[in-house]
Design a binder for these strands. Structure first.
Length: 638
RNA sequence: GCCGAUGUAGCUCAAUUGGCAGAGCAACGGAUUUGUAAUCCGUAGGUUUGGGGUUCGAUUCCCCACAUCGGCUCCA
C-alpha cells in the first residue's frame, strides 16, 4: 500500500505497483484519454512508467505546452521511422521538438525531394493507423554503441560517446525502428493524429559548418486536427502578409539583382512612410532633449582599429578600400563618429547628459545566403543615438530611454513587450564596481516602469550590460528591435574624458541605443503587422477621390487640393472607368479612405467616403471629414 | 559561405520526349460617361537572369557566375 500525491494536493492510494496510465485512469476517464506522459517527483516520464512507492505525480495532457512538446518529439520519431522504412540507407541523427513543430536530421545519399515528403507523410499516416506501441528500455553504454554501430548508425554511436557516462541510456522502439532518446514519448503511434511535413533544408551535423551537411525535414504537429488547421492557416496568413510580396504589390520598395543583394531601394510610396516615421522620430527626440548629428558613411580604417571593430567585428565588415595611400572603411556602425564629435572639444561635467542622435546608415557584410527581404540586408539605417553621462546619471538616462522606447513602440501599435536584461559575461572589460552599479541601474529603470523582465545572466556584450526589448506582432511573432547598451570599452579606447568638479580628467559613461533598430527591418515588420493596411498617419496614400464621370472633375480636384492643403496625402482618380473598377483597384492598394464624388456630392460640396471597412458611409460634408482625418493623423491613431 | 530548390513580357504563370516562346492582368490606342470590388475591342511588349559548352537545332541537357526562396542555436 502506498499513496501518490497529485498536483492539487489530493492523495490516491494504491495496493499494487501501477503505471502512470493507470494512475490517470484512476483519477478520471477523460484525463486518461488526454494523457500523453507524466511527471514523477518533477521528472518527465512515459505513461508506462511504473510507480510502487509514495511519490508526487502529475499527468501531462496533450493540450498542455509540455504535452504538445512530447507530441512533437514523438512526431519527429514517427517521421524517422517512416524515413527508415522507405529509405533504409538513411542514417538518423537528431530530431527534437521545436516551436510549433519538430525536425529530424538525416544523412542520406541523395537529397530528399518534395515528392519524398509526400511519401514520407503518407507512410507516417500508415504507421499511425498501425498504432505501433512505443516502448522504452535502458541499456548499457557499450551495448548501445555496439547496437547502433551494428545497424550502421554512426551518428547515434557518436552521440552516445558525448553523453555523460553516469547517465542511463534509453532506447525507444516502435515497430522495427529503435532510436536512442531521452524521451518521454506518447504510448503508441496512434496518439499522433495531427501533423504535416513542411520543408526540407540543409543543416550541419551539430550546427557546425566544418561538419557534414545533413538533410533536415521540418514538420508541424498538434494535439488535434483543429489546432493543426489553425496553425496552417496562420502560416498562410503570414505568407499573405510577407513584406516582400506586399512591398512589390504596393510599390513600396525593391531589391535589385543588378545592384546587388541586400541593398534596398525605397520607392516614392515607401519613402512617404519612411518620412512619416522619421518625422515622428525627430519630433520625439527633440522633446526628449536630443541633438542631431550627421556623420560620414566612410572613414579612415585606423578609426576602426582604435574602436576595436577590426579585431572583433571584422567578419561583418566590408573590405576596406584604398584611397590616396590610405585604407578607408565603409561604416558598419555609427558610434566611433559620435565619439569623434565628442572629442572635437573639451567637455565639462556640466555638459552632461549629452544626447546625440543620428539616422545613421551602416553597411555590414552578411552572408549571401542569409539575406532576406528587408529583415536581413547589407545596408540599413539605424535610429541610433549615443548618450554620454556620468555614472550617477545612468539610471535616470536609462529610465528616460526606456520611456521613449515604450512610447515609440506603442505609437506604432505594439503594446506587448518582452524585456531582457543581459549581465556581465565571463570575458569582459571594466571593473566589478561599475558593472554592478550599471546592472543595478538598468534593473531599477525597468522596475520603475512596472515591467517584468528576464535576466540573461552572462548574456551581455563584453563591453557592458544591456536591455533588449521584443515586440509581438498581430500574428504573435516576436521581434527584437530596441536595444539599450552600456559601453565601458569605447570611452577607454578613444580615451575620451571630461573635466570634473575637482578639475581633474574623468571618463564618461557611454550608452548606445536604438529603438526601431533598423528602419528597413522595422518597416518590414510594420508592413507584416498591418498586412499593408497602415494606420492613417503612416499610409503612403491616405485617400483617393474617385469620380463617377468627367463632369465631376472640377469638384474632385477641388476636394483633392483642399485635403492636400490640410496636409493629407490625397490623390484624385479621374480616369474614365466605372466606379466599381476604381473602388476595387484602390481597395487592393489598401488605401484607407476612398472619397466618391458624383452629382449629389458636387451639388452639396460634399463627398461620400468609404473607410477601411469597405462600407459606404454616405454623403458627408467635406470640411467635417477633413477635420476628423487631420485629428487622426495628429494623434497618430493606430 | 554551405546544402537544396527556383530564375520565361512590368506582375502572376504556361510551353509534349530538345523542334517557330504563349495566356491573364498591367501598359498603349479606340469605343463607352458609367453610383460602391474587374465595360468592350484592338496594339505593342522577350538576347527565356548573365556567360560558356553539347547539338543540325537549347527556355528545355551540361559547366560557371549572379540573384531569389527554404534552411544552417534550440542536445541523444
Amino acid at each position: 500500500m502506498f499513496e501518490v500525491t497529485l498536483p492539487d494536493g489530493t492523495v490516491k492510494g494504491f495496493d499494487r505497483p501501477v503505471t502512470l496510465g493507470e494512475v490517470a485512469a484512476a483519477i478520471g476517464a477523460g484525463l486518461a484519454k488526454a494523457a500523453v506522459a507524466g511527471r514523477v517527483d518533477g521528472r518527465l516520464v512515459d505513461l508506462s512508467h511504473r510507480v510502487d512507492h509514495g511519490v508526487t505525480v502529475a499527468i501531462i495532457t496533450m493540450q498542455s505546452p509540455e504535452g504538445l512538446e512530447i507530441i512533437r518529439h514523438s512526431a519527429s520519431h514517427l517521421m524517422a521511422q517512416a524515413v527508415k522504412e522507405l529509405f533504409p540507407g538513411a542514417q538518423v541523427t537528431i530530431g527534437p521538438a521545436v516551436e510549433n513543430g519538430f525536425y529530424y536530421d538525416f544523412d542520406f545519399e541523395r537529397p530528399f525531394t518534395t515528392g519524398d515528403l509526400t511519401a514520407i507523410e503518407a507512410r507516417m499516416q500508415q504507421i499511425v493507423e498501425r498504432n505501433d506501441v512505443i516502448t522504452r528500455s535502458e541499456v548499457g553504454r557499450d551495448e548501445a554503441v555496439t547496437f547502433f554501430k551494428g545497424m550502421g548508425e554512426q551518428y547515434k554511436a557518436e552521440i552516445i560517446s558525448a553523453i555523460d557516462a553516469a547517465q542511463p541510456l534509453s532506447l525507444y522502439a516502435q515497430g522495427n525502428f529503435i532510436d536512442l532518446c531521452r524521451g518521454p514519448h506518447v504510448p503508441s503511434t496512434g496518439y499522433l493524429k495531427a501533423f504535416k511535413l513542411l520543408s526540407v533544408a540543409g543543416a550541419y551535423w551539430r550546427g557546425n559548418s566544418a561538419n557534414k551537411q545533413l538533410q533536415r525535414i521540418y514538420g508541424t504537429a498538434w494535439a488535434d486536427a483543429k489546432s493543426l488547421r489553425a496553425h496552417l492557416h496562420m502560416l498562410e496568413e503570414a505568407e499573405k502578409r510577407d513584406h516582400r510580396r506586399l512591398g512589390k504589390e504596393l510599390d513600396l520598395f525593391s531589391i535589385q539583382e543588378s545592384a546587388g543583394g541586400g541593398l534596398v531601394f525605397w520607392h516614392p510610396l515607401g519613402a512617404r512612410v519612411r518620412q512619416a516615421i522619421e518625422a515622428y522620430w525627430r519630433e520625439t527626440h527633440i522633446a526628449a532633449g536630443y541633438e542631431f548629428l550627421y556623420t560620414p558613411h566612410m572613414a579612415n580604417l585606423d578609426l576602426w582599429k582604435t574602436s576595436g571593430h577590426v579585431d572583433f567585428y571584422r567578419d561583418s565588415m566590408f573590405h576596406s578600400m584604398h584611397v590616396d595611400e590610405q585604407e578607408y572603411q565603409i561604416r558598419p556602425m555609427n558610434c566611433p563618429f559620435h565619439i569623434l564629435v565628442y572629442q572635437s572639444r573639451m567637455h565639462s561635467h556640466r555638459d552632461f547628459p549629452i544626447r546625440w542622435a543620428e539616422l545613421g546608415t551602416v553597411y555590414r557584410y552578411e552572408l549571401s545566403g542569409a539575406l532576406h527581404g528587408l529583415f536581413r540586408v547589407r545596408g540599413f539605417t539605424q535610429d541610433d543615438a549615443h548618450v554620454f553621462c556620468r555614472e550617477e546619471q545612468i539610471e535616470d538616462e536609462i529610465t528616460a530611454i526606456l520611456d521613449l522606447t515604450l512610447a515609440t513602440l506603442g505609437t506604432f501599435g505594439f503594446q506587448e513587450f518582452d524585456i531582457f536584461l543581459s549581465t556581465r559575461p565571463e570575458k569582459s572589460v571594466g571593473s566589478d564596481a561599475i558593472w554592478d552599479q550599471a546592472t543595478t541601474a538598468l534593473g531599477n529603470a525597468i522596475r520603475k516602469h512596472h515591467l517584468d523582465f528576464v535576466e540573461d545572466r552572462g548574456g551581455g556584450a563584453f563591453y557592458g550590460p544591456k536591455i533588449d526589448v521584443k515586440i509581438t506582432d498581430c500574428l504573435g511573432r516576436k521581434w527584437q528591435c530596441s536595444t539599450i547598451q552600456l559601453d565601458f570599452n569605447l570611452p577607454e579606447r578613444f580615451d575620451i574624458t571630461y573635466i570634473g568638479e575637482d578639475g581633474g580628467k574623468h571618463r564618461p559613461i557611454m550608452i548606445h541605443r536604438a529603438l526601431m533598430g533598423s528602419l528597413e527591418r522595422f518597416f518590414g515588420i510594420l508592413l507584416e503587422h498591418y498586412a499593408g493596411r497602415f494606420p492613417l498617419w503612416l499610409a503612403p496614400v491616405q485617400g483617393v477621390v474617385l469620380t463617377i464621370t468627367d463632369a465631376h472633375h472640377p469638384w474632385a480636384i477641388a476636394v483633392r487640393d483642399r485635403m492636400r492643403a490640410a496636409g493629407l496625402r490625397v490623390d484624385a482618380d479621374l480616369r474614365n472607368e466605372k466606379i466599381g473598377y476604381k473602388i476595387r483597384e484602390h481597395t487592393l492598394k489598401k488605401i484607407p479612405w476612398l472619397l466618391i464624388v458624383g452629382d449629389r456630392e458636387q451639388e452639396q460640396k460634399a463627398v461620400s467616403p468609404r473607410d477601411g471597412s469597405g462600407k459606404d458611409l454616405g454623403l458627408m460634408p467635406l470640411e467635417g471629414l477633413i477635420e476628423t482625418l487631420v485629428a487622426q493623423v495628429r494623434e497618430r491613431k493606430v
